[in-house]
Amino acid sequence: MIPKFEAVMVELRNYDIEAYQWILKIPPHHWARSHFSGRAISNMLLNNLCEVFNSKLVKGRDKPIISCLEFIKEYLMKRNGGQKYQVKGPWNDQYMVDMEKRECSCRKWELTGIPCKHAIASLNEMVDNNEKVGELYTYVHKVYWLDTWKEMYSFKVEPIKIRAMWPKSDCPTTLVPPPHNKAIGRPTKKRRITTEEMIEIQQCKRQANSQSQNYNETQSLSRKFLTVICSNC
């Protein structure tokens, strides 16, 4: 290949000396196939692939360098596919969802066993891409399945004999009741109301008071443009 390259270069020199001198300034291993190495493993000498890739990055070219690189990364992620998704939120929050391992970087899916909003967004993306989603209940932990609930309540409490027929225990430890200190005053019979319940009760009272006040205002009559006559007349 190299002797043929040299022969063609001689023809170019005889045809146009200026073009020959210009092309000598460029190393042959950058443009001549005779001097290429076997590293590329490609028979394509065109830049069509680069042009197609650049056409997909038109919207990201005018962005800052980090935003531009993020745009390119997201495009390559969507093109290559996979079971991992990058979910962005409206407040510049970003999380990684692994649909195969049923995990999300917000850790709500692992802790509760119920898919978080990022997993739901990933499922919607899978449906839009015509990917197989399967039954939605399979993305919830098995403790929430109906079969698990039925199995949990499948056992029953067995009846027992009278206390006098119970066998004597051989345990050397004697269990005694804990010490009891009687509190001062009348014992409470109702449970203590939590702070959230107290707030709800106050809100209900305020709403009821405002409704009654509005009702009284609508029922009261105005004396404007009315003639007032005493009882004697």
Rank of each mutant, 00 (worst) to 15 (best):
K132R: 06
V133H: 11
M152P: 00
P115C: 04
N130D: 13
Y137I: 00
K78I: 07
V143W: 05
Y144L: 10
E103G: 00
G89K: 07
K142I: 09
V97D: 08
Q86C: 13
K59N: 14
Y85C: 06
L76K: 10
T148R: 06
L69Q: 06
E131S: 03
Q94D: 03
C104M: 09
H118G: 01
V97E: 10
K150D: 14
V97A: 13
G81L: 10
I120P: 00
F155K: 04
Y95H: 14
M152H: 09
M96N: 06
I162A: 13
E103S: 09
P64R: 01
K88P: 00
F155G: 01
G113Y: 13
K142N: 02
Q94P: 00
K73S: 12
I162C: 12
W149D: 03
D147T: 10
L136Q: 01
A119Q: 03
K161R: 12
K117A: 04
H141P: 00
G113S: 11
I120H: 12
I65N: 02
V133Q: 08
E110F: 02
E131M: 12
S105N: 01
L69P: 05
V97P: 02
I114Y: 05
F155E: 09
K142P: 00
G113T: 09
Q83I: 06
D62Q: 13
V97Y: 10
E151P: 00
H141S: 14
K108D: 10
C68S: 15
M96C: 06
E125C: 06
G81Y: 05
C116Q: 01
A121I: 07
Q94I: 03
R107M: 07
H118W: 03
K142R: 07
D98E: 06
V133R: 09
K161Q: 12
E125A: 15
L69S: 07
E70A: 10
Y75P: 00
V87N: 10
Y139T: 00
K101F: 03
E151H: 04
I66S: 09
K84Q: 15
W149G: 09
Q94L: 12
K161A: 13
K161I: 09
K161S: 12
Q86N: 07
N130W: 12
W91P: 00
S105Y: 03
I114L: 12
L76N: 07
N80H: 13
D128G: 01
T138E: 09
L146F: 12
V133W: 10
I162K: 09
L146T: 14
Y85I: 02
K101S: 13
W91E: 15
H118M: 06
V87C: 15
G82P: 02
V97R: 08
E100R: 08
S122Q: 07
I160L: 12
K101H: 08
N80L: 11
Y95V: 10
S122H: 07
K142Q: 07
G60W: 08
K63A: 10
L146V: 14
V58L: 15
S67M: 10
Y75M: 15
P115S: 05
L146N: 08
S122P: 03
E151W: 05
A121H: 03
C106T: 04
R102Q: 01
N92E: 15
